[in-house]
Write a protein that binds this DNA or RNA. Structure first.
Length: 607
DNA sequence: TGAAAATTCTA
DNA sequence: AGAATTTTC
């Protein structure tokens, strides 16, 4: 937001204002907004701010989760009606979700064709240089970033350790990026399967918080690729493709969120609603603590807790173990990721968990259980990773490091390990998990068939509720436990207040309180594709609002047409009034990709 | 050169 | 787990 109209074309770099907008202004902490104190309504807060500063223009960048889409649209309406010029931009993505369509003009339902299409499109415009000067008018005086309180004392304390390893800010983002493309990128294709972080870009938190522009990443990696291609460095070139692909996954997560507004809460494939999840809080706790008895899983969970980061592959390992072996409800895991990962990202994490839990057309097969032992030798052949995070196994020879339960007693003794005592036996045997999974799947298909039969018999009125996923309450106990642990350890969630998370969960209290009517209205009518500002950038802005509306209606129409043909069954129309019961009040996190050894809470990153 | 075996990859 | 690709003989 700028008090002066001189700041134009913010499409390239984010500005501080935009960053504020990403996670909702915390009005209650901002002295400049005393009038709006206690308000959690962004629109009211902005209105107040605009009035008090005399701003004439408002600029912001797009977000694609349902909460933001609705809210941002309201901002346009309300502030527009006040005579404020409101202009929004794409800054988070290479291409806007509504720009990427298949031959029939329909949104893709699978990643590969989506990404191939992206790669064939005209390259996104190169990022712009930052403006030489921003005339921030009254704004800088009345609410500089120093006045905004992003963490309280207890948060500050619990973040101290993480802060040592993490360097936020765009300069550091830039440094990390340069280091990556001049270093590990060339060997990315060879090294990417190793479990440790040395070979990954560790950029995901910077990307998440808008400290690094995806378009900049895209262009520079493309240039490297060209260079290596000319030198016929096949590996280097392939590394670039693979790395860009992980950027593509991030794009795709927004794409999915946009096309399926509930994808962070509901499985995209309808039958998953009938899966009989094992509601077992002991399993859940054991998983969180890294005491499952499977070394690779446990090492991952310990690393996650200690550093707030996990390699992409290990995210797949632990989450797939969670869903397939423990058969816990995936949204619990997603919530835990959200709480612990420093690159926690709603869209990316929802994509990841849906992929793992078999909810995507191109996801992993539901009936396939990955064997952590084999994965262990694949990603961590020498056992270094396991030894680093599980000191109790440090003296175990590599031969047994990923399956200590098979090791001869003498070997265990020599390594100082007593299974069941200082390292657990497998909490669930894989064979047992397999048969349990088979049973669960048959049950799921039976229920699904029964439900479909009933619907065909015209009984859908009677079972309106049953087609929603049965609500599985998020374990209460987790809240307390995490706070306890957080004060002892370092990680991210310590003392975080609920409001800080601002997870666009449709069921969050914030949402209900502030926007329920609007949202239900939004989801009720099928014409709701919430207000996608289309082609905003290069238009003179007089007619912009009008064009927006038209464009978004267009998009909506197209979307609805598509919706029928897709195999996804996302009963958006059911999400009304009470709004679908959700497992978790928050959501998830996960990025199929890079990360940073991250330090600091989410809320403290923003500065 | 072709079939069989081994390895790799899967969003 | 299974398809696709590469290596082996």
């Amino acid at each position: 937001m700028s008090a002066s109209p001189s700041m134009s074309g913010g499409a390239g770099e984010r500005t501080r204002t935009v960053v504020w907008f990403r996670r909702d202004l915390r009005v209650e902490d901002n002295p400049a907004l005393a009038a709006a104190r206690r308000s959690t309504d962004t629109v009211a807060a902005l209105l107040e701010l605009v009035r008090s500063t005399g701003a004439t223009h408002l600029f912001f960048n797009h977000l694609y989760d349902p909460l933001s889409l609705v809210r941002d649209h309201r901002v346009k309406q309300v502030l527009g009606a006040e005579g404020i010029t409101v202009q929004s931009f794409n800054s988070d993505l290479l291409y806007e979700p509504w720009e990427v369509l298949d031959d029939h003009g329909c949104p893709f339902t699978m990643f590969t064709p989506f990404w191939n299409t992206c790669l064939c499109m005209v390259d996104p415009p190169a990022p712009m240089l930052p403006p030489k000067r921003i005339n921030s008018g009254e704004l800088s005086r009345c609410c500089s970033s120093d006045d905004l309180i992003f963490e309280d004392e207890s948060e500050r304390g619990s973040n101290a350790l993480l802060a040592r390893a993490w360097s936020p800010g765009w300069q550091n983002a830039d440094k990390a990026f340069t280091a990556f493309i001049n270093g590990p990128l060339i060997d990315y294709s060879v090294n990417r399967k190793k479990a440790d972080s040395a070979n990954t870009s560790l950029l995901s938190p910077y990307l998440h918080f808008g400290e690094l522009s995806v378009r900049k990443v895209f262009h520079q990696v493309r240039m490297k690729q060209l260079t290596w291609s000319n030198e016929s460095n096949g590996d280097g070139e392939e590394g670039c493709s693979l790395f860009l692909r992980s950027i593509g996954l991030r794009e795709y997560s927004r794409y999915l969120a946009f096309n399926h507004p509930c994808s962070h809460e509901k499985p995209l494939l309808a039958h998953l609603r009938f899966f009989p999840w094992v509601v077992n809080e002991v399993y859940f706790k054991v998983w969180r603590q890294g005491r499952t008895g499977y070394p690779l899983v446990d090492a991952g969970m310990r690393e996650l807790w200690a550093t707030g980061w996990l390699h992409d592959r290990i995210r797949v390992v632990v989450s797939s173990f969670f869903v397939k072996v423990l058969q816990l409800p995936w949204r619990w895991g997603m919530k835990y990721f959200w709480d612990t990962l420093l690159d926690a990202d709603l869209e990316s994490d929802a994509l990841g968990w849906q992929y793992i839990s078999g909810s995507l057309p191109d996801g992993r097969e539901l009936d396939r259980i990955d064997n952590p032992q084999f994965e262990g030798y694949k990603f961590d052949p020498c056992g270094e990773y396991v030894r680093r995070w599980l000191p109790e196994l440090a003296r175990l020879p590599t031969e047994w490091i990923h399956h200590p339960w098979d090791a001869p007693e003498s070997v265990l003794q020599a390594a100082g390990i007593e299974l069941g005592s200082n390292y657990p036996l497998p909490i669930v045997e894989l064979d047992e998990a397999k048969s349990r999974l088979q049973d669960a799947l048959s049950e799921m298909w039976e229920l699904e068939a029964a439900s479909r039969a009933e619907i065909e018999n015209g009984m859908e009125e009677g079972l309106g509720d049953s087609s929603d996923e049965p609500p599985i309450a998020f374990p209460q106990e987790l809240q307390h436990m995490e706070v306890d642990r957080a004060t002892i350890h370092t990680p991210a969630m310590a003392g975080r207040r609920r409001a800080d998370q601002m997870v666009p969960s449709i069921t969050s209290s914030f949402f209900r309180a502030e926007t329920e009517t609007e949202l239900s209205a939004a989801f009720e009518s099928e014409v709701t594709r919430p207000e996608v500002p289309s082609q905003v950038h290069f238009q003179p802005q007089t007619r912009m609002e009008v064009r927006d509306e038209v464009a978004s209606d267009d998009t909506a129409a197209r979307y609805n047409g598509v919706q029928q043909q897709q195999q996804y069954t996302l009963h958006r129309h059911r999400v009304q009034g009470g709004i679908a019961p959700s497992t978790s009040e928050a959501s998830s996190s996960w990025t199929g990709r890079e990360g940073v050894i991250w330090t600091g809470t989410r809320s403290s990153h923003i500065g």
